[in-house]
Amino acid sequence: MLRGFTNTLNSSQLQAGETQLRVENIQLNFGGVAALMDINLAVRQSEILAIIGPNGAGKTSLLNCISGLYRPQRGRILFYNDKEHEVTRLKPHQIARLGIARSFQNIELFRHMSVLDNLLAGAHIHMRSNLFSSLIYWGTAQREHIRFRRFVEDIIDLLEIESIRNNTVGSLSYGLQKRVEMGRALAMQPSILLLDEPMAGMNSEEKEDMARFILDINEEHGVTIVLIEHDMGVVMDISDRIVVLNFGQKIGEGTPDEVRNNPLVVKAYLGEEKSPFKFGQSNNNNHGKE
């Protein structure tokens, strides 16, 4: 399908393959519980990196450290655009301004706003009109509003949510809310997009749509994607690399093939009744499981 994008969704200035995000020796404790132990990993520009692991492995905690919601006791997280930024020193809104966007495992939309307003709220960091201009809605405020109103229309197109743009998000189905939440993160024109279980609780058709959107965003716009997902079919299918966490430790990393054949990873999943990797490499008829 042809889409006339008037705006890029990607604000990164790096070349594909350059290191964009580096997690160094992160240690995160909750009281006596270690949620993350000495985690190291790097995310490269324009790749899809999946983070997998059993429940409670520390996947969400890792994203929360990156977006500044949790503060690790040790280690640091570095983000590169024009220069190196130490994310671990910054507040969530400052991290967002660097172009790090995310969605949440449990949908955290602005419930009483329309879909449109949620998307516009996602573009908050790009809005510059001053308070006075806003109060009289004249000059920069009005121009800016019209420009971003057009911009979010691109996202509405991309995510195929034309028919619900004026609905209040609280009234939408779970699957659509997940989609809108990803749209809100995209409206930030992110350099890197962190998605926490974007397909959880969806039926196979919705999952396929979502996988297609993620691939679109990655391939057409070059947005780097860090994806937490439990559905191994999807993960093996769409990710370039995979990081495996278990009880707060990184137990494996590599291409889908390498991870599938990593004995430590297979062992970590042995508790489950079936091996999650039993299907063939290009076989994705597993989408419908759950």
Binding site: S67, G68, L69, K91, P92, H93, I95, A96, R97, A101, R102, F104, E108, L109, F110, R111, H112, M113, D117, L120, A121, G122, A123, H124, I125, M127, S129, L131, S134, L135, I136, Y137, A141, E144, H145, R184, A185, M188
Partner: peptide, 30 residues
């Protein structure tokens, strides 16, 4: 002035804080 305020990012940031303050901060709202 109030109606205008809520057409722009100032007003949206206020509502975002009310609805979901953590998400608001992750979207870049100080």
């Amino acid at each position: 002035a109030t109606v205008n305020l809520f057409r722009t990012h100032y007003g949206r940031a206020f509502i975002a804080i009310r609805d979901q303050d953590i998400a608001a901060s992750v979207m870049g709202v100080d």
